[in-house]
Simulated assay, not measured.
Amino acid sequence: MTVAIVGDIGGTHARFAVWRDNGLEQIEVLATADYSSPESALAAYCERAGLSLGAGSAVCLACAGPVSDGDFQFTNNHWRINRAAFCRALHIERLLLINDFAATALGVTLLEPNERLAVRAGHAQADRPVVVIGPGTGLGAANLLPKGAGEWQALPGEGGHVDLPIGSESEAELWLLLHRQFGAVQAEDVLSGAGLLALYAVVCQRNGQPAQHANAAQICAAALQGESLATNALEQFCVWLGRVAGNHALSLGARGGVYIVGGMVPKFADFFVRSGFAAAFADKGAMGDYLADVPVWLVTAPYPGLLGAGVALQQAG
Results as ranks from 00 to 15, higher is better:
3 V>S: 06
3 V>N: 04
5 I>M: 12
6 V>G: 03
6 V>E: 03
6 V>W: 02
8 D>F: 03
10 G>A: 08
10 G>C: 07
15 R>E: 07
16 F>P: 01
21 D>I: 08
24 L>Y: 02
25 E>Y: 14
29 V>W: 04
30 L>A: 11
31 A>Q: 15
32 T>F: 05
33 A>N: 13
33 A>H: 15
37 S>H: 11
38 P>T: 04
41 A>R: 01
42 L>W: 05
42 L>G: 01
44 A>F: 10
48 R>A: 12
49 A>I: 11
54 G>I: 11
54 G>V: 10
56 G>D: 07
60 C>V: 13
64 A>W: 04
68 S>F: 11
71 D>K: 13
74 F>S: 02
81 I>V: 12
88 R>V: 12
96 L>R: 07
97 L>R: 03
102 A>T: 02
106 L>Q: 03
113 P>C: 08
116 R>N: 00
121 A>S: 12
124 A>G: 08
127 D>C: 04
134 G>C: 00
135 P>Q: 05
141 A>K: 01
143 N>S: 12
145 L>P: 02
147 K>R: 15
150 G>P: 08
152 W>D: 02
156 P>L: 08
162 V>Y: 10
165 P>N: 12
166 I>L: 06
166 I>G: 01
167 G>H: 12
168 S>D: 09
169 E>A: 15
175 W>I: 09
178 L>C: 07
179 H>E: 14
181 Q>D: 11
184 A>T: 13
185 V>Q: 02
189 D>F: 03
190 V>Y: 02
192 S>A: 12
193 G>V: 03
197 L>M: 10
198 A>R: 14
202 V>H: 02
205 Q>Y: 04
206 R>F: 07
206 R>H: 11
208 G>V: 11
209 Q>S: 14
209 Q>H: 14
212 Q>F: 09
214 A>Q: 15
214 A>M: 15
216 A>G: 08
218 Q>W: 07
224 L>N: 08
225 Q>T: 09
231 T>S: 15
233 A>H: 09
234 L>V: 13
234 L>K: 04
236 Q>Y: 11
238 C>V: 04
240 W>K: 06
243 R>G: 01
245 A>P: 00
246 G>V: 05
247 N>D: 14
250 L>W: 05
252 L>S: 07
254 A>K: 01
258 V>L: 04
261 V>T: 11
262 G>K: 00
263 G>W: 00
266 P>A: 08
268 F>V: 03
271 F>R: 00
274 R>H: 13
275 S>K: 03
276 G>L: 06
280 A>N: 05
280 A>R: 02
281 F>G: 01
281 F>T: 03
284 K>Q: 13
288 G>T: 08
292 A>D: 10
303 Y>K: 10
303 Y>T: 12
304 P>T: 03
308 G>K: 01
308 G>N: 04
309 A>W: 01
316 A>K: 13
